Lab assay of single mutants.
Amino acid sequence: TLATPAVRRLAMENNIKLSEVVGSGKDGRILKEDILNYLEKQTG
């Protein structure tokens, strides 16, 4: 899974598996926005 260290840390802090997040960046890269959108969906 393609993600920057900052995105990986954000995911780890929120107990998110990067494999569950759909990346919207180039080549499927997971962006910070993708993590935040995933969190919004989870908290509903």
Rank of each mutant, 00 (worst) to 15 (best):
T4P: 03
D27L: 05
K26E: 15
L10Q: 04
L18D: 03
E33R: 15
V7F: 01
L39H: 09
L2H: 12
D34T: 00
E20S: 11
S24E: 03
L18T: 03
L39P: 07
N14W: 08
R8S: 11
L10W: 03
P5Y: 07
R8W: 06
Y38P: 06
N37D: 13
M12I: 04
I35N: 03
I16K: 03
E20Q: 11
E20Y: 05
E40T: 12
G44W: 05
A3E: 07
K32P: 14
L31G: 06
G28S: 04
T43S: 13
D34M: 00
K32W: 06
A6G: 11
I30S: 01
V22W: 05
V7I: 09
G25K: 03
R9S: 07
E20F: 04
L18W: 03
I30E: 03
L18P: 04
R8E: 13
K41V: 12
D27F: 06
T43I: 05
G44N: 04
A6V: 08
E40L: 09
E33M: 09
K32L: 10
E20T: 10
A3K: 04
T1D: 13
L10I: 08
V21E: 03
N15S: 05
G28V: 00
V7K: 02
E20P: 00
R9K: 13
S24W: 00
P5S: 09
E33S: 14
L39T: 09
S19Y: 06
I16D: 01
L39M: 15
T1G: 11
E33K: 13
E40K: 15
A6H: 09
T4E: 04
K41I: 09
I16P: 00
T43N: 07
K17H: 09
L2C: 07
T43M: 09
K17L: 09
V22N: 11
V22A: 13
D27H: 15
E40N: 12
L39F: 07
K26T: 11
Y38T: 11
T4N: 11
T4I: 02
T4Q: 03
R8V: 12
N14R: 10
G28T: 02
L18S: 02
R29N: 06
T1M: 15
E33Q: 10
L36Q: 13
I30Q: 02
L31H: 05
I35C: 08
I30L: 05
N15E: 10
A3Y: 09
K41Q: 13
T43L: 08
R9L: 11
G23T: 03
L10S: 03
G23N: 11
N37F: 05
R9E: 14
G23C: 02
L36P: 06
S19P: 07
P5F: 10
L31F: 05
G44V: 11
Q42L: 08
G25D: 03
Q42E: 14
K26Q: 11
L36S: 11
N15R: 08
I35A: 05
P5M: 12
K17E: 09
N15K: 14
V22K: 15
V7D: 04
I35H: 04
L31R: 07
I16N: 01
R29L: 08
A6C: 08
L2W: 07
R9P: 00
P5V: 13
L39W: 06
E33W: 05
P5D: 15
V21G: 02
E20A: 10
I35G: 05
G44K: 15
K41L: 10
I35E: 06
N15H: 08
D27Y: 07
N37E: 12
K17S: 12
I35W: 02
S24Y: 15
R9I: 07
D27S: 07
N37G: 13
K41Y: 09
I16A: 03
K17R: 12
R8P: 00
L2K: 14
D27G: 12
R29G: 07
D34P: 04
E33C: 12
K17W: 03
N37I: 06
V21C: 06
D27C: 05
L18R: 02
L39S: 13
L18K: 02
S19V: 08
I16E: 03
A6M: 09
V22D: 09
V7Q: 02
R9H: 05
T43K: 15
G28W: 00
